[in-house]
Simulated assay, not measured.
Amino acid sequence: MDEREALASFAALSQETRLATVRTLVVAGPEGLAAGAIAERMSVSPSNVSFHLKELDRAGLISQRRESRSIVYSANYDTLADLVTFLMEDCCAGHSGIRGSVERSMGCCPSET
């Protein structure tokens, strides 16, 4: 991810409804949610959520697909991972004590045993 793409992602995420929408879609998993279900969960109007979904899609943070009469949205995990990597690219640059903090914070997906 280059700086321009990172800035577009951060701009899209810098609004409360959009950030909450991305977090909701991350939790929903790869199967995603229909736009109406997102609006319901977010307690916003369908037209409001459509506006925000368009901005998130334009930034590449979410993907959409048609299923019958619905448009289903899902988090674009590759782009989100690229954004985190962009932030952490220079991590620990000569400061080995930082590594433990970063590793502890990256525990979102427990390893399968």
Rank of each mutant, 00 (worst) to 15 (best):
L13A: 01
A81Y: 05
E31P: 08
T17Y: 08
R104C: 11
L53N: 01
P30G: 13
V84N: 04
A59S: 09
T79A: 15
A59V: 05
S74Y: 00
A20F: 06
D78Y: 03
E89N: 06
E55T: 07
A8P: 03
S70I: 02
A35M: 12
E5G: 09
T17A: 13
E31D: 15
I98R: 11
L33G: 03
D78G: 08
S96M: 10
E103L: 07
E16W: 02
C108D: 13
Q15H: 15
G97P: 08
A39Y: 00
S70H: 08
S101N: 09
V72K: 13
M1F: 03
G97L: 04
T85V: 12
L25G: 04
P110Y: 09
S70E: 12
A34L: 03
S96Y: 10
A39F: 00
T24C: 07
I71N: 15
S9T: 04
P30S: 14
Y73E: 08
C109R: 12
S14Q: 09
Y77W: 11
S96Q: 11
P30R: 09
A75I: 02
R99F: 10
S101W: 08
T24N: 13
R65C: 06
D90I: 01
A81V: 04
V49M: 04
T24Y: 10
I38Y: 00
G107E: 15
S74V: 02
A28F: 05
A75L: 01
V22R: 04
S63V: 05
I98N: 13
A11V: 09
L83Y: 00
R41Q: 13
G36V: 01
A6K: 06
S14W: 05
L61S: 01
G100W: 03
P46F: 02
Q15G: 10
L80C: 02
F86D: 09
R66M: 07
D90Y: 06
P30N: 13
G36A: 07
A81C: 08
R99E: 15
D90V: 04
A81M: 05
A93G: 12
G36C: 00
L61T: 01
T17C: 12
V72M: 11
V27K: 14
R66P: 04
L80V: 05
R23C: 14
P110D: 13
A8K: 08
H52E: 11
Y77A: 09
S50R: 07
A59H: 02
T17R: 08
P110A: 14
D82K: 03
M88Q: 10
D78C: 04
V27C: 05
I62F: 00
F51Q: 13
Q64W: 05
E103I: 06
E16S: 08
L7I: 14
L56K: 01
T79Q: 14
C108R: 15
T24F: 01
R18L: 10
A28Q: 11
Q15F: 06
V27G: 14
N48G: 07
